[in-house]
Amino acid sequence: MSLRALGYLGANAVDLKEWKDYACDVFGAQVIDEGPDQLKLRLDDKHHRMTIYKADAPGPRYFGWDAGSRAGLANIVERLKRRGCDLAEGTAQESDDRQVMGLVKVNDPSGNALEIFYGQRSGYPFQPARPMAGFRIGDMGLGHVVFMTTVLDEMLEFYGELGLRMSDYIIMRAFGDAKAHFLHCNPRHHSVALVPGPYNVFHHLMLEVNGLDDVGTAYDLINARKINITQTLGKHTNDHMISFYSQTPSGFELEYGCNGRTIDDEDAWNIVEYDAVSYWGHIGPANPAH
């Protein structure tokens, strides 16, 4: 058994209203719950996919990975125990907050806080905050996350133990020819990417939508609001995603794109190495003054 998908994300922010405006007005997320201390955002029929917590400092808080079932979670827990990982069972309050049946917490070798869960609850159909064709999530999960890491080998071994498989590599010329590793656990081209570097840092979350018009509309809205675009509109070499990047109110970046290719036939997939990140575009920063 292996992880099924990236299921949800939690992040800290100083200003919840700034996150609400950014996520809803620009990207089309739906507010499902709002209070003075947290903001929950829905992107599909799951109760919520993102929780933003009011905090003194911005940053990522946790990454929720779907084990698929109670038995799947138990299997992963046993594997992590054999590795000597320090695990903690989530409380009933934490499970209720995430709207899951149960979860276990563990840090990956870079110190990223993971929550491995089962039984993510669904609700009524997604109602976007602005007209759009919706997010491409479903069984492929929330999207993907990218980590820079000082312990690449340990991270590859850890996520490999959780069932993630190699998709391909990219030589990052802008980072001293560092080799980025892209891993998948379902048909999405990658659910996590690992880049060796001098720091342990969460770089970005990718959200995929169903149409190019939604990407273009968001791009115009980002520019109109003078939100920091960290990479312009472009097309990636490996997953073919047409996307742009902007800085979230939590400090990390958000990639917003469409047309990502999938790995539908594991046996027929060829692992290759690319010498460029993008075919075109993805130039940044676009709005350095903002």
Rank of each mutant, 00 (worst) to 15 (best):
S2C: 06
L3N: 02
G10T: 14
W19L: 11
V26G: 05
A29V: 00
Q30T: 09
Q30R: 06
Q30I: 03
D33E: 15
G35P: 01
P36H: 06
K40I: 10
D44V: 03
D45T: 02
H47W: 10
P58R: 01
P60N: 05
Y62S: 06
Y62A: 12
F63H: 12
A67C: 15
N75H: 15
I76G: 01
R79G: 08
R83V: 07
G84Q: 04
G90M: 04
T91W: 11
E94A: 15
D97K: 11
Q99A: 15
V100C: 11
L103E: 13
V104G: 06
K105M: 13
G111D: 03
N112T: 09
A113P: 03
R121A: 14
R121C: 07
A129M: 12
R130L: 11
A133K: 14
A133N: 13
I137L: 10
G138R: 10
G138L: 05
G141A: 08
G143K: 00
V145A: 07
V146D: 05
F147H: 04
M148I: 11
T149L: 03
T150D: 06
L152K: 06
E154A: 15
M155C: 13
E157C: 08
F158P: 04
L162K: 09
I170K: 13
R173I: 07
F175I: 10
P187R: 01
V192N: 00
A193Q: 06
H204W: 02
L205F: 01
N210V: 01
T217M: 05
K226N: 14
I229V: 14
T230Q: 07
T232Y: 03
T232M: 05
K235I: 07
K235D: 02
K235R: 15
H236W: 02
H236Y: 06
M241H: 02
Y245G: 04
Q247D: 06
F252C: 01
E255H: 08
Y256M: 10
Y256R: 09
C258K: 00
I263W: 06
D264I: 08
D264F: 10
D265N: 10
D267N: 14
A268I: 05
I271S: 00
I271D: 05
V277T: 01
G281M: 04
I283H: 12
P285M: 07
P285W: 00
A289C: 07
